[in-house]
Design a protein around this nucleic acid. Sequence first.
RNA 1: GGAGAGGUGGCCGAGCAGGUCGAAGGCGGCGGUUUGCUAAACCGUUGUAGGGGCCAAAACCUCUACCCAGGGUUCGAAUCCCUGCCUCUCCGCCA
Length: 422
Amino acid sequence: MLDVKIVRENTARVEESLRKRNYDLSILDRFLKIENERRELLRLIEGKREQRNKVSQEIAKLKREKKDVLSFLAEAKNISDFIAEKEERLKILEEEARQELLIIPNIPHESVPVGKNETENVEIRKWGIPKKLDCAPLNHWDIAAMLDIIDFDRASKIAGARFSLMKGMGAKLERALMNFMLDLNTSKGYKETLPPLLVNRESMTGTGQLPKFEMELFKTADPEFYLIPTAEVPVTNIHRDEILNESELPIYYTAYTPCFRREAGSYGKDTRGLIRQHQFNKVEIVKFVKPEDSYDELEKLTNDAEDILQRLDLPYRVIALCTGDLGFSSAKTYDIEVWLPGQQKYREISSCSNFEDFQARRANIRFKREGKKGTEFVHTINGSALAIGRTVVAILENYQQKDGSVMIPEALRKYMGVEVIR
RNA sequence: GGAGAGGUGGCCGAGCAGGUCGAAGGCGGCGGUUUGCUAAACCGUUGUAGGGGCCAAAACCUCUACCCAGGGUUCGAAUCCCUGCCUCUCCGCCA
């Protein structure tokens, strides 16, 4: 959520932001129209309330002196009736203004490249060289079928499309990756957490999934909970409605969780294999930082996610999302894309974003500076480190061998207990 | 699932036979006195948001709202009534 003051007093900046993101400018006009009416009405009501409070105090005084108050009662009643009527309208306006404000996206940072869509994202750096395989590269689902470590057919019997059943060394590979990633992240100062996978509406609104993206979420009926699409949601909400001390910052968390996504609107995309699932495992890293540090911290967080790929010796590149591809809540995002020989393409395996104070304002996460009056919103940053299903894909495809077996990356062997899956 | 207790400021905790209560007291924070230094003691100060005075800020003054949330009663609600949410205790059931 943007600062109402910025929207009101710095409208041009918000307009530019919407234009760069290819958003319809009408959402801004709608908001401003409602907001102006709301302010005007609020002034009127506050003036009337002042009147009423004065009369009420007068009544209290007269009563104490045992004097007659009848004429004042009638006057006060009139004012109260007037206020009650106007307040109804005010409530409607307040709710409307809030709803409009909640669907205005964050303002991209000045360093974000301007562009229409994902084709105009900018490559920042590349690491590693795709290995020359001594055979024609296979897709991970063919490799997995041959090794009998992922069973998509039975998964669809049990649940449906876009689910997977990991078996044997496949299941163990997922578990090994979780442990490897969590161990590495915690060694860098990220505190391990294991949060709820079902959350309430407030939490989803706090991080920006609601109200705009309801269609992308799974939801339980009674009682009503939302299944998390990423650990970002419960972990960022750890400090919702809190005031942190400056000395506590920065706070680093890491969390392994399953993630649940409807994937509505992605019919026909990545229908085979592990790339796009309704349920997948992910290790996330999240930071709460002071505003002046947030862009340095984003770079460091991105490096921390890259470190995992380097240790697994998987080639990747880092791209900066352009304004047209940037997520709703994000001010700046780096995607890390891993090389997949089976597709002969780089595919997203992590997304690292600085939300500045956009989530913090929605979720009301503030901090107090030492010796200073008042509070400020923290900046929140998070990234995948990493998406585990896609890491499995990358390992299967990059480490496949001519005989159909798959080597285990050096760093993972102590977690797997074997050097090769065959 | 059954029975009970409770949700007040950064924290703890009074107030709850409706009026001068934004709310006693304590802790913490900040400023000061004292001190070789530290501690202690003492004095003062200390909520958030929005609006107006002055739209260039800051300070100051002033108004409005906020005692879990939402409704209701009333001239007036932290206080009374209803609903919801959350927390805790006991019993039952359960991985």
